[in-house]
Nucleic acid binder design. Structure first.
Length: 312
DNA sequence: CTCCGGGACA
DNA sequence: TGTCCAGGAG
């Protein structure tokens, strides 16, 4: 195992100066991950690119605990992209359940069709090819390349951004996302070897999720605390611009969720009054219903009822 | 920059 | 009640 970021006398000296950029010991992090990583189902050796793509899509803005049962069910029902592609949108939306952001399910369904028809039913390993798939963005494309195919690709999610902001830059937390800067920061940390780089990417995410957390970081058990610029700077509080908080209660998002839940739980299309019952504000209800139709998450039947797409 | 779900936990 | 959670797209 090679390590391009071995700690040097110079970097240790730099670490001692608060507020300065530091270099973390990537070997320590990789070793820690090998010993302490959680045993998540999509990390199994038998999991292929499809399993990783499904897990990464489900994990977008969604906690691990909620994803696990749904991911297992999907893998059992649809072990290959073509299996999902052959399924109706209505069935896919029901199986997505209450994971949230159901447009993800529609995009994954579209991606499965593209993979089946254009990529020989095999999830691509090339980042640019992955990026062309619906629902696959900067994060997911690199996560699949690294975790499924062991490639060297900077994988930057909210956790990695926080770890880098702290350990490398000595800041309390990351500011607004800046994709190019974030990718460059992480790229600079990655060993040149593909396998080691992929392991480090997984380790950085795991550290941010389980140790270097937002509220109560476990610095006392952190494998790279000796090199952490934030630690050396006295763990300063976040000093950047205030982060934007999105409301949920009372928003169109909530109404859309309530409407869709009626359809998920019904056998087939329902009459308008059944939908109207879920929300008091008629104008907002209509707006939400219309947006669901526009998004293709709902369809209207010939006789005026509403149902999940692709349903009779 | 705004919108897009939903649940758990302080 | 507020906050966070393996983001992506318009």
């Amino acid at each position: 195992m090679t390590n391009q970021n071995a700690r040097s006398a110079e970097s240790v000296a730099k670490n001692a100066a608060p507020g300065r950029t530091s270099t973390i010991n990537t070997d320590d992090l990789i070793e820690w991950f090998a010993a302490d990583a959680r045993d998540l189902p999509w990390r199994g050796p038998e999991v292929d690119g499809w399993g990783v793509l499904v897990s990464e899509t489900m994990l977008q803005q969604t906690p691990v605990a909620r994803v696990m049962p749904i991911w297992r069910e999907w893998m059992a029902r649809w072990p290959k992209p073509s299996d999902l592609a052959a399924t109706s949108q209505a069935e896919v939306l029901r199986a997505w359940g209450k994971l949230g952001y159901p447009r993800r399910a529609m995009r994954l369904h579209e991606a499965a069709s593209a993979i089946a028809s254009e990529h020989d039913d095999t999830v691509p390993s090339d980042v640019d090819t992955l990026l062309a798939l619906p629902g696959v963005g900067t994060y997911t494309a690199r996560a699949v390349a690294a975790f499924a195919y062991g490639k060297r690709a900077p994988v930057v999610d909210t956790n990695v951004r926080r770890v880098v902001a702290r350990a490398v830059h000595g800041e309390g937390d990351a500011g607004n996302p800046s994709p190019n800067r974030d990718l460059a920061d992480v790229d600079a940390l990655l060993p040149s070897d593909d396998r080691d780089a992929a392991r480090l990417s997984a380790a950085l995410m795991e550290l941010g999720q389980t140790v270097c957390t937002v509220k109560s970081p476990g610095c006392e058990i952190c494998p790279i605390v000796a090199d952490c610029a934030w630690q050396h700077a006295g763990r300063p509080a976040y000093a950047g611009p205030p982060k934007k908080v999105q409301r949920f209660a009372g928003t169109d998002r909530q109404v859309r969720g309530l409407l869709l839940d009626v359809l998920r739980r019904s056998e087939g299309p329902v009459q308008r009054p059944e939908l109207d019952a879920v929300w008091h504000d008629a104008a907002q209800r209509d707006r939400a219903l219309d947006s669901l139709l526009v998004d293709g998450l709902l369809e209207q039947t010939e006789d005026g009822r509403f149902g999940l797409p692709g349903e009779e």
